[in-house]
Write a protein that binds this DNA or RNA. Sequence first.
DNA 1: TTGATGTCGATGCAATTGCATTTATATTGC
DNA 2: GCAATATAAATGCAATTGCATCGACATCAA
Lengths: 144, 144
Amino acid sequence: MTSTPDDAAVSAWLALARAYRLAFATFEARLKAENLPPMAWYDALWELEKAGEAGLRPFELEQAMLFEQYNLSRLVERLARVGLVERCACPEDRRGQVLSITAEGKATRARMWRVYGEALAETIGGRLDDGELRLLADLLRKLG
Amino acid sequence: MTSTPDDAAVSAWLALARAYRLAFATFEARLKAENLPPMAWYDALWELEKAGEAGLRPFELEQAMLFEQYNLSRLVERLARVGLVERCACPEDRRGQVLSITAEGKATRARMWRVYGEALAETIGGRLDDGELRLLADLLRKLG
DNA sequence: TTGATGTCGATGCAATTGCATTTATATTGC
DNA sequence: GCAATATAAATGCAATTGCATCGACATCAA
């Protein structure tokens, strides 16, 4: 039985939390410094861009982003309000809607990526070599 | 030049973010289910408990927790309000104060640890063996 | 000294998040 | 068919967070 974690698990978790928070805070700060929207906007825009023409239902986006339903609802509202995302009535389920990214949304995502990607390269790519990065990703995926 | 990150860095970051958010959300949910305070309270209490009699200055706690100054100020206020932490005037710097954990604070932290630790053992310890955990921690520390 | 600048911590206000509930539509069991 | 239950998304309200700034003291330079 795994009732109390051993030191190795605790150390790994603490290192995980610290690495994540540090990197995330860096990315957010760089975006803000360039007057760009926060990371959550990027994630939503990217999921929608990947989804293409078909778009995504809010609940699908919610799962992809690990977002709470009410938070997603409001995030989408903000994105729609400034024209980065479009909401259409869903033909198959009249409770729902279909979200898709607009041209302006794609442009904003691309602008964000220049900043986010550069910070990512520095903060993550610059500190581990390719083999280490792959190993890290594999280990982390076992936690999912 | 690291201007655009390569795939390995992006995959590692995405896996890192997903693993962190999943684990963190699990821990928070378990604590709430037991009517216990959130993770941030745990972190603060633990840092103060480790610091012992001498206590910590708010700005030290801020650095240890990677918290914003104003958020820490308010967190400490809440902790003090319910008697888990004590604030004393700092003898060496009259702008500042010294924080220390109370007996009740220690008891609360211990109660939280039973829940948090168990979830940690399940979510982290249960999915990787000891060697993998050590390797993961080492890789993550290179990102710090 | 003393005036300029820096650091510690708090706080007013706006934006965001969490929680509980609501509205609207789908689905399921009888 | 229809009542009971489930799911999609929104929302009122309280709590928290982010931002800018403040007040108090410390430090430094002349």
